[in-house]
Amino acid sequence: MTKIATTLERSDSTSNSLGPVKKPKRVGRWILFAVMMVVAVIMLYPFWVMIVTSLKSEAQFLAGSGFSWLSWSRLTSVIPIGQEVLSSTIVCSASIFVIVLVGLPAGFAFSKLRFRMSTVIFLLIVSAMMVPLQAILMTEFVNITRLHLTGGYLGAILVYASLGTPFSVFLFTTYFRGVPDELVEAGIVDGLGYFGALWRLVVPIAVPAIATVTVLQFIQIWDDLLVGLFFIQNTSQRPITVGLAVLAAGRTTSIPELMAGSIISALPAMVVYLGFQRYLVKGLTMGIDR
């Protein structure tokens, strides 16, 4: 008992002696915590509303109380939700595949190879990141129409890939600049060519960069409405965002059904984000500590 009492006394005296120094820090942390809580509530509240609303029938929603699975069960009959999720998945996966496939060798070339005008070409490609989709939508539409690719997935995939590639080139170039040249040179002396060095030595250690490109592009493409609306004109191949827009633009709109569809639409992006987030921070902060 005596020992415990002594220890407590000591800890008290320690905390007292450090009190004036620690206090502002602790107060600052509480303020920060409170601000973060408010931000979290603001961010999560729409999700909460979405979930609660989806669990009501139309009548319950208008009445403001009650619980029902009706909107979820009706959803599949209102829009082909399964097909739309599949379409979104196909467009997203194929676009990201092209973006990564083009970005990796381009980033490798800009960071590791010496060739004329490389800086100028790099800046030209990267500057394309600043052009908003809306600015080139009509010209892209004309081009894709002339190629007769507006019916199915291919036109949308090409547009998404061309919009996402500048970012991936920028990100991979930055990442590969942090990879020691000697690693590539060791591979070349060991018997690899440049492509071999890229695929067998550099890509395996570029997982954070690949994950970052994948997550950011997935969220962007999955959530996009405009390209799907313009370039996928075959209704049986339209993506989930277009499906929801159709649902919302109907003569009568069922809010609970729309919310149920929105949850289905938001879930994949959330899953991808949460699954890759540990790489995301590393991928986005690379180069800062150099």
Partner: peptide
């Protein structure tokens, strides 16, 4: 380089 049949040890080792 791959056809010269030489092996190189680098300053920072360059291990994979």
């Amino acid at each position: 380089p791959k056809d010269r049949d030489v092996a190189m040890v680098f300053q920072n080792y360059a291990l994979y």
